[in-house]
Amino acid sequence: MFMWIIKRDLLLAMRRQSDVLTTLFFFIIVVSLFPLSVGPEMNMLRTMAPGVVWVAALLASMLSLGRMFANDYVDGTLEQMLLSPQSLSLLVLGKAFAHWLVTGVPLVLMAPVLGIQYDLPADALFVLTAALLLGTPVLSLIGAIGAALTLGLRGGGVLVSLLVLPLYIPVLIFGAGAVEANMAGMDFDAHLSLIGAFLLASIVLAPWAAAASLRVSLE
């Protein structure tokens, strides 16, 4: 069931590749806007880089949340999934994982390139990528709750940002903090461990909460 839902969602995403690319290019454009707005001073850009990349990743991941359930909701597939005897939490976990593969992984792969734009040193690039790799699945998992709650609502897209962005704050703090600690010559293990802890906690709790939200939204 878990593998099946991932395969299905990936196939659907591959059939509509422009959606994936839109999210990725949104990420690239947002990151590229900052040097244009604050000036190309390299020292400042270097200190800003982790924060800018993380905020852009947060926004990009959030903007694509609408797609997680919306299409299945419109064509009735979601209702069939709710009626199936399989565990709904597992299904949500699969959908969140597929969402991460489609939106999170491209961001992670693109981040080092954008880091070079900001003149980050090599090991900071590595830490940035590692932090994003651990952190972006948390965004997809927490986002699943928001996406499930706002299913089929007026102005759901803006509403989901109000619900989800405050909950993203810990990931943002430690994600950007890891890179900053590395650039300041400090240990970044603790930051990564904490993001890992968020990931484990959200794997356990978020699918359950999102499944409950789906039941509320579809009842």
Partner: peptide, 14 residues
Amino acid sequence: AIIALVGVINIPII
């Protein structure tokens, strides 16, 4: 209720 409970779990973490 779901968002309030998720929030209350998150408040200490935040």
